[in-house]
C-alpha cells in the first residue's frame, strides 16, 4: 500500500494522562479520528480488526458504570482483548501496591492499562514505571481527559466548532476532575469558560486557568451556549460545604423556569451519573436541549480513537 497517498500525522504520545499536556493539534486529531469511529458503532457488525491481538486492562479503584463500559466496548469494537479488574476484588485488598499490581499485569504482556484512582497522579506514576501505555480514566480531583475529549466532541458535533463558544460549567468545581480537564481542553480550542457554583465549592485562584467565575446561575444561563452541569458528589460533601442539598438545588439546580432566559439553542450536558432533582430537573435531563445521552454515545467513539492512536501502530 505504499502507493496509497495517505496523509501521515505526528503522534508520538504513549499515554493520555491530562489534557494539560496535549497540544491543540493533538486534541483536534483525536476529535477528527473519533468521527470515523462513530460510524463503526452504527454498523450491524460493530467490529473492526484494527487492534487484533492487543490486550487492554481496566484497573478501577473507584466505582464506574459509564467510563468502564465505554472503554471496554471501545476496545472490543477494535478487536482488542479486555479484562476488568476492580480493586475491591483484587490482590490490592491483600496489601499489594498499585505499582506491583500493574507490573504483574504487564508481565502478562498487557499493552495498555486504563486506570481510575481516588488519588491524583496515580496514572502518571504508573506511566513512569511501565513500558506499555496508560490512560487516565479519572484520578482524584485532577483530571478525566477522556471525558473532556468526549464533551468537546459532542459540542463540536452540535455547533460545528468550539472556538468562540461560551461554556458554563456549573456545580462542585472544587472536587471536579471533569471540570479541570474541560477547562484545559476548551481553553486550548478557543472557547470562553465561565465557572459557576457555591463559593465553598469554588477553588481559590481558579481564575488563573483563564476562566471567569460567577456565583449567580441566572446570570450565567443568559450568556452561555453550553451549560455543563457537574454531579454533586455527595460522597465528598461530608465536610459541610453546603448548608443543605435543598439549598444547592434551589440556587444551582437547573429547571425549565431558570432556562427561560437562555439562548434558544443552548445545550445541556452532564458527565453522569445525574442526580435528578438536584443538579437538574427531569424535564431538562430528558428535554430537547439535553445532549446527555449523545455524550455517552460519543464516549465510545472518542475512546476508540484514543486506543487506535495509542496502540494502532508500532512505537
Amino acid at each position: 500500500m505504499a502507493d496509497k497517498n495517505k496523509k501521515v500525522i505526528q503522534w508520538d504520545r504513549r499515554n493520555i494522562l491530562d489534557l494539560k499536556d496535549l497540544s491543540k493539534e493533538e486534541i483536534d486529531l483525536v476529535l477528527e479520528t473519533a468521527k470515523s469511529f462513530k460510524e463503526v458503532s452504527k454498523r450491524d457488525v460493530k467490529k473492526v480488526p484494527t487492534l487484533r491481538g492487543k490486550s487492554v486492562v481496566t484497573l478501577f479503584f473507584e466505582p464506574s458504570t459509564r467510563t468502564r463500559a465505554s472503554f471496554e466496548l471501545a476496545a472490543k469494537r477494535l478487536s482488542a482483548d479486555t479484562i476488568n479488574i476492580a480493586a475491591s476484588q483484587s490482590s490490592i485488598s491483600k496489601g499489594e501496591t498499585i505499582l506491583d499490581t500493574a507490573r504483574n499485569l504487564e508481565a502478562m504482556n498487557v499493552d495498555l492499562i486504563i486506570v481510575r484512582h481516588g488519588c491524583a497522579g496515580v496514572p502518571d506514576e504508573l506511566a513512569k514505571h511501565l513500558k506499555g501505555s496508560v490512560v487516565n480514566a479519572g484520578d482524584g480531583c485532577r483530571a478525566h481527559p477522556t471525558q473532556a475529549l468526549l464533551d468537546m466532541f459532542t459540542i463540536q458535533e452540535r455547533f460545528g466548532k468550539i472556538e468562540g463558544l461560551h461554556v458554563g460549567i456549573v456545580g462542585d468545581i472544587l472536587h471536579s476532575r471533569v471540570a479541570r480537564s474541560n477547562i484545559w481542553g476548551l481553553k486550548k480550542l478557543g472557547a470562553k469558560v465561565t465557572l459557576c457554583g457555591p463559593p465553598t465549592l469554588m477553588p481559590i485562584g481558579i481564575e488563573q486557568m483563564g476562566v471567569d467565575v460567577s456565583y449567580d446561575l441566572n446570570e450565567v444561563i443568559e450568556k452561555v451556549d453550553v451549560l455543563m452541569l457537574l454531579r454533586l458528589q455527595r460522597e465528598r460533601q461530608k465536610d459541610n460545604f453546603l448548608p443543605s442539598l435543598r439549598e444547592y438545588a434551589k440556587y444551582f439546580g437547573v429547571n425549565k423556569k431558570k432556562l427561560s432566559k437562555a439562548k434558544k439553542d443552548l445545550v445541556i450536558m452532564h458527565p453522569g451519573p445525574t442526580n435528578r432533582g438536584l443538579e437538574l430537573s427531569s424535564e431538562i435531563a430528558d428535554g430537547d436541549n439535553s445532549l446527555i445521552l449523545d455524550q455517552v454515545t460519543n464516549g465510545v467513539a472518542v475512546r476508540m480513537a484514543i486506543l487506535y492512536l495509542l496502540l494502532g501502530t508500532k512505537t
Binding site: 500525522i9 486529531l29 477528527e32 479520528t33 469511529f37 460510524e39 477494535l78 494502532g312 501502530t313 508500532k314
Partner: peptide, 21 residues
C-alpha cells in the same frame, strides 16, 4: 476507508488518518 483493515498497521510508525466509511 480501509485504514482499520490494513495488514501493515503494526509495521508502520505513524498512524494514517482514519476517515469515515
Amino acid at each position: 476507508d480501509i485504514t482499520l483493515y490494513r495488514d501493515d498497521l503494526t509495521s508502520i510508525s505513524a498512524q494514517p488518518v482514519v476517515h469515515e466509511t
